[in-house]
Nucleic acid binder design. Structure first.
Length: 216
DNA sequence: AACTCGGGGCA
DNA sequence: TGCCCAGAGTT
């Protein structure tokens, strides 16, 4: 039993090492370390590429900096600024309402506790963890659809819901890898381990992957 | 659990 | 041109 666990630990570390080799430039996808600006950028990132979010926020933050600038915007004004990110009506309303809550309830500061963050409209489990990890340097593993799918295929988790996957990943991956691993798994999920037709034949992880072991 | 929001990416 | 998506909220 102990031997199996040791082998599994080694397998996880090998996976991480290969991911690091192949995706050396994985950084925080959204540039902003300022908690509020990261919050806005992360809300915008739903169902949208980070490349486009960065384009939009670069413009946006030249005009509007902090929650006081967003709180009094008319929804239509903000909608026009963020239209290219899609889902703009929801995102606009959520950003404005979150800005107001941050001003009224949190004295203009983005809260640094998970339970408070998820009270903000537009902030769910994934967004809250992105902010905790990247803006506040707190231990958190953000699980999005790519992380969820790829982790399960790799056998990093057998969880059927994002929360269980999150717990498994935090158990199995060393904490100083969490932010990087988040981006590695996303890149891999987009480039190779896609939802419908994963390119297992050319995958650099195929020898270590549960999904491939089971299917080939 | 299924539906909605939505412009952009990609085959 | 049609399908899908680096989520979250509502029913």
């Amino acid at each position: 039993m102990k031997e199996i666990c040791e082998n599994e630990k080694e397998r996880v570390l090998k996976i991480l090492k290969l991911l690091e080799e192949h995706y050396p430039n994985a950084t925080t996808a959204l540039r902003y370390n300022n908690p509020f600006q990261l919050l806005v950028a992360t809300i915008l990132s739903a169902q949208c590429t980070d490349k486009r979010v960065n384009q939009v926020t670069q413009r946006l933050f030249e005009k509007y900096k902090g929650p006081e600038d967003f709180a009094n915007l008319k929804p239509e004004e903000l909608e026009n600024e963020i239209r290219e990110c899609g889902l703009f009506k929801n995102k606009s309303r959520n950003i404005i309402e979150s800005s107001r809550m941050i001003l009224e309830k949190y004295a203009g500061r983005v809260p640094d506790e998970f339970e408070e963050l998820v009270k903000l409209p537009g902030v769910g489990r994934k967004t809250a963890n992105v902010i905790l990890a990247n803006a506040f340097g707190k231990p958190a593993f953000a699980v999005d659809t790519h992380v969820f799918r790829v982790s399960r295929r790799l056998g990093l988790s057998d969880g059927n819901d994002p929360l269980k996957v999150e717990k498994d990943l935090t158990m199995r991956i060393p904490e100083d890898y969490w932010i990087k691993a988040h981006h590695w798994l996303i890149y891999h999920g987009r480039r190779v381990c896609t939802a419908r037709k994963p390119n297992c034949e050319n995958c650099f992880l195929k020898d270590l992957c549960r999904f491939c072991s089971y299917n080939f």
